[in-house]
Design a protein around this nucleic acid. Structure first.
Length: 478
DNA sequence: AACCACTACAACCGCAGATCT
DNA sequence: GAGATCTGCGGTTGTAGTGGT
C-alpha cells in the first residue's frame, strides 16, 4: 500500500488504491443520506479523500444494494455469451440485462474467459454455437436490419461460410449492434489473407474444388467531401485512383473459419488445421486485437454495414488451366513500394501468409503495427491516396464475388456493373438492392443475396452527408 | 519456505456525450 | 453558443490470492 496515498498524508490530494471499510462506510452513509449522483460533492462534503469517479465506481460496483456477488451461474454465463455475441464489448448494456451484475464484473469475466479459452485452444464461443445451418440466416429480418438473431449472432455466421459442394452462400447481417460479428468478420479478412498457403496451388486450389469461386472483392466505403455519390455510379474507387491498378489480397476461408471453430467443414476440406492451439491462438489474438478497433471506430448510426459476399461456385475464369489462381497485385499506393508488393507467384507461395503483413509493414515502416491494424491503416492510406478526404469515415467493407479476375472481367469502379448476377439473379434478398450503403434507405431495401452485410465501425464520426461519400474498393482474392 | 506463473478482481485512466452555467 | 462540469463507458493496470515446483 502506498502510504502517500492515504487520506491526508499527501497534502490533501485524493487517495487512490483499494478502499477501506471505513471509506465504504462513509460513502454508504453519504449516499444513503443524499442519494446517488453528484459524485464530486461526495468528496467535498463527506470527508472522503476520493475523487467523484472513484466514489461512483465504488458504489456502483461494490456498495450499492442488490448487487449479486459470487461466481456467475451457468445461466448467467450463457447470457453473457449470447449478449456478447449480440452486443460486443458493451459491458454496460450487458450488465443492464443481468440484474445484480456490474459491467466491470462482466468485463472481467469475459476477458479472463477469453484468455482461458485461448490458452486452451478453444473457440471463444462455444462450439455448439457454431453448428447451425447457414440457411437460418436467410430470409427477411424481423427488425428490417439484421439477418442474424441475437441468439445466433456469434460465430454462427462463420459456420455459414461456404460448405463443400455448396453453390452459393449468402449471408446477411445488417445490424449495427452486432459489433462482435463485425470484428470477427473483419478479422477474418486479414487472418485469411495471412493464412499459410503452402504452395501456389495449395489451399486455394483445394478450396476452389470444393467451395467455389475464389475471387472476392472487398469494397470499402468511406466518407468524402468531394461530392461523390453512391456505389456504382462513377465513384472514384481505390482501384481507379491507383492508376487503374488493383490490390488483390489472397485469403482463404479455411483459416478464417478456424478462428471461430466453425466445425468440421473446412477441416474436412483441409485436414490438419483442425486442432492447433497455437494457430488458433494467433487467430484469436488477431480477432481480439481487432476488437480494439472499438477505440478507433464506432458504428455509423444508420448506414454503416459491411457487405461480404461469399464466393459463388468456381468459374473457369477463376483459375488458369494449370489450376493456379491468377491474381493481379498491383501497387496502389505510392506509400507502399511496388517492389514490396508480392508478385503473383509469391502471393501464392510460402510467403503468401505474410503478404498483408509485408504490405502493412511497408506501409508503416516506423510504426511497427501488428497486422491487426492492417485494415484501418491501409484504409487510411488508401483514403489519403484518394485525395484528400479530410474526414473519412469507413462506412462499410464489402466482399463481393467476381466470376472473373478483378480488373479483367469486371469494372472495378462499379461493383454492380462488373458483378456476375446472372447465376443468382433469382436469389433476391429483401435488403438493399442497390448495394449503396450510403443510401439511407438501403438498409430497408432488398439487396442481392450474394452480399453479406455486416456492420462496421466508422471513423470517429465526422458525419458526412451520404451524397458526399465515396467508396474505396479493395479486391480480395479468395 | 521461497519463488514463480497464473488468475481473478478491483481500481484507475482517458475519452466522449450529456448536462449545467 | 461556449466553456465547464458531470457522468458513464470501455480499456488497461495493479495487486492479492492460489497453486505448482
Amino acid at each position: 500500500m502506498d502510504l502517500s496515498s492515504d487520506i491526508g498524508q499527501d497534502g490533501g490530494s485524493l487517495k487512490k488504491g483499494p478502499w477501506t471499510s471505513a471509506e465504504d462506510s462513509i460513502l454508504i452513509s453519504y449516499v444513503t443520506k443524499h442519494g446517488e449522483g453528484n459524485w464530486n460533492s461526495v468528496q467535498k462534503h463527506s470527508g472522503l479523500f476520493r475523487c467523484g469517479k472513484s466514489c461512483r465506481l465504488r458504489w456502483a460496483n461494490h456498495l450499492r444494494p442488490n448487487l449479486k456477488k459470487g461466481a456467475f451461474t451457468p445461466e448467467e454465463e450463457r447470457t453473457i455469451v449470447e449478449l456478447h455475441a449480440k452486443l460486443g464489448n458493451k459491458w454496460a448494456r450487458m450488465a443492464a440485462q443481468l440484474p445484480g451484475r456490474t459491467d466491470n464484473e462482466i468485463k472481467n469475466y469475459w476477458n479472463t474467459r477469453i484468455k482461458r479459452r485461448m490458452r486452451a485452444g478453444l473457440p471463444v464461443y462455444p462450439a455448439e454455437k457454431a453448428k447451425s445451418s447457414p440457411t437460418q440466416y436467410y430470409g427477411k429480418p424481423s427488425d428490417g436490419r439484421s439477418f442474424i438473431s441475437g441468439e445466433d449472432a456469434d460465430c454462427d455466421f462463420i459456420s455459414s461460410f461456404p460448405q463443400p459442394g455448396d453453390h452459393l452462400h449468402n449471408l446477411h447481417a445488417i445490424n449495427e449492434c452486432d459489433h462482435s460479428l463485425t470484428r470477427n468478420c473483419l478479422s477474418m479478412i486479414p487472418m485469411g489473407a495471412l493464412a499459410p498457403s503452402t504452395t501456389n496451388q495449395g489451399t486455394n486450389q483445394v478450396l476452389n474444388k470444393t467451395i467455389g469461386n475464389p475471387f472476392e472483392q472487398i469494397e470499402v466505403f468511406r466518407n468524402s467531401h468531394h461530392g461523390r455519390s453512391g456505389i456504382g455510379n462513377g465513384n472514384v474507387s481505390f482501384a481507379q485512383l491507383a492508376d487503374g491498378g488493383n490490390l488483390n489480397f489472397q485469403t482463404d476461408f479455411n483459416s478464417s473459419s478456424q478462428g471461430c471453430d466453425r466445425g468440421t467443414t473446412t477441416r474436412d476440406v483441409l485436414p490438419g488445421f483442425g486442432n492447433e492451439p497455437e494457430r488458433n491462438m494467433m487467430l484469436y489474438d488477431r480477432m481480439s486485437a481487432y476488437g480494439n478497433l472499438n477505440l478507433l471506430f464506432k458504428p455509423p448510426v444508420s448506414n454503416a454495414s459491411l457487405k461480404l459476399e461469399l464466393p459463388s461456385c468456381q468459374s473457369a475464369e477463376s483459375a488458369d488451366s494449370a489450376g493456379t489462381q491468377r491474381s493481379s497485385i498491383t501497387n496502389p499506393s505510392p506509400l507502399i513500394p511496388s517492389t514490396n508488393i508480392l508478385s503473383e507467384s509469391e502471393s501464392y507461395g510460402s510467403n503468401a501468409s505474410n503478404f498483408l503483413e509485408t504490405l502493412m509493414q511497408d506501409a508503416h515502416p516506423t510504426e511497427g503495427l501488428g497486422q491487426v491494424r492492417f485494415s484501418m491503416d491501409i484504409i487510411d492510406q488508401l483514403m489519403a491516396l484518394t485525395s484528400g478526404n479530410t474526414n473519412p469515415e469507413v462506412a462499410a467493407l464489402v466482399l463481393s464475388p467476381q466470376k472473373g479476375r478483378w480488373g479483367e472481367n469486371s469494372d472495378p469502379t462499379t461493383p454492380l456493373a462488373g458483378r456476375t448476377f446472372s447465376d443468382h439473379s433469382e436469389e433476391v434478398s429483401p435488403m438493399c438492392p442497390t448495394g449503396n450503403l450510403d443510401d439511407p434507405e438501403a438498409s430497408t431495401m432488398p439487396l442481392l443475396s450474394q452480399y453479406l452485410y455486416l456492420p462496421y465501425y466508422g471513423y470517429k464520426s465526422q458525419t458526412c452527408p451520404a451524397k458526399d461519400r465515396k467508396k474505396l474498393r479493395l479486391p480480395i482474392l479468395i
